[in-house]
């Protein structure tokens, strides 16, 4: 399957739409926009299942893997400018962290939130320590690693942007295919299990989707703020609709626009980190949604007897 040409076509289409933008900016927008949309879409189900914090642990846990991949590449390849290999390292250590979370959570007297914090601390601590070691090495051009921590799409290569776009597209497509199953899992996991849905498979798929978005988002948003791009768009979208398909689509839209906007602003001036700008844009959309959103999120105690015209609320 030829991956490159069609994506190049997409870039060319984008170029014809926005002729004023330079090639580097278009590449940055492609990477950040597609990643933002995927994060918003996949994040909707994570937030509804109250599992969003796993993404924080996975994001931070990519650091030791990325550092080790960087070190190995510097030692054996002479250069560490290969993004796919860096992300592969991040994927491995995030996967290891996911396994560690479930193992620690199974220990007696350890709740899942504690397990998440323990694993986040251990992996991120190791990553920071490795980063310090790398900075001591003469050969260490750790500038490439900074881009994965804060997010920086200014120097993103076209091929890397395409890879991010394809990973994002894949994550969105899998989520669409399993939409109703992931919805029931989020709403009522026991009912899903009773009806014979493959719960473990669905949970695993959701974990893989989260890892994919997290790792693909390292370059655009960075490992610290990726959690925000998974959580803020769905939270903002929830103010505009009470229907899950609409919320998920809106969340993808908000995430995608935040990615485009943040990448565009950061391209205006050297030294503006992309990740914080993307997340700030999403936060602004959240604030606007909070103020102008159309769904009235009534609290249960505010219900007035007979307000629905049919009966009196008791109890």
């Amino acid at each position: 399957m030829m991956i490159g040409p069609s994506l190049e076509t997409a870039s060319v289409t984008l170029a014809s739409l926005l002729p004023v933008l330079e090639f580097n900016t278009r590449v940055a927008l492609l990477g950040a926009g597609s990643l933002g949309a995927a994060a918003g879409f996949v994040g909707t189900f994570l937030v509804l299942r109250r599992r969003a914090l796993i993404a924080d642990t996975l994001g931070h846990s990519t650091l030791p893997g990325v550092c080790i991949a960087f070190l190995l590449m510097t030692l054996f390849l002479g250069s560490a400018r290969n993004l796919p290999l860096l992300l592969a390292g991040g994927t491995l250590s995030a996967g290891l962290a996911a396994w560690a979370v479930s193992a620690v959570a199974r220990l007696p007297k350890i709740r899942e939130d504690a397990a998440l914090a323990i694993v986040l601390g251990a992996f991120f601590g190791l990553g920071i320590a490795l980063l310090g070691v790398l900075q001591q090495l003469e050969t260490g051009q750790v500038a490439g690693l900074d881009a994965l921590i804060d997010g920086n799409v200014a120097s993103l290569r076209a091929g890397d942007a395409e890879m991010i776009a394809w990973l994002s597209l894949g994550a969105v497509l899998v989520t669409i295919l399993l939409f109703k199953e992931l919805a029931l899992l989020a709403f009522d996991a026991e009912q899903a299990r009773l009806q014979g849905l493959p719960i473990r498979f669905l949970e695993f798929v959701q974990l893989v989707l989260t890892v994919v978005v997290t790792v693909a988002g390292l370059r655009a948003v960075g490992l610290i703020l990726i959690i925000a791009l998974l959580v803020i768009p769905p939270a903002a979208a929830r103010f505009w609709s009470n229907r899950l398909p609409v919320v998920a689509a809106l969340s993808a839209l908000i995430g995608g626009l935040s990615g485009l906007m943040g990448a565009w602003i950061s391209a205006q001036r050297a030294g503006l980190p992309t990740g914080p700008l993307i997340v700030l844009t999403a936060s602004a959309v959240f604030a606007l949604s909070l103020i102008f959103g159309t769904t009235r999120r009534r609290r249960r105690v505010e219900r007035v007897p007979g307000v629905d015209g049919s009966e009196v609320v008791s109890g």
């Binding site: 109703k180 029931l184 009522d188 026991e190 899903a192 009773l194 899950l244």
Partner: peptide, 28 residues
Amino acid sequence: VAYMPQRESVDWEFPASVSDVVLMGLYG
């Protein structure tokens, strides 16, 4: 076999309409 849970176990803020919830009974 069908099961109806207690009210307390449900997330009432979930973005689902009444008909969405009933349709979920058919997903399996």
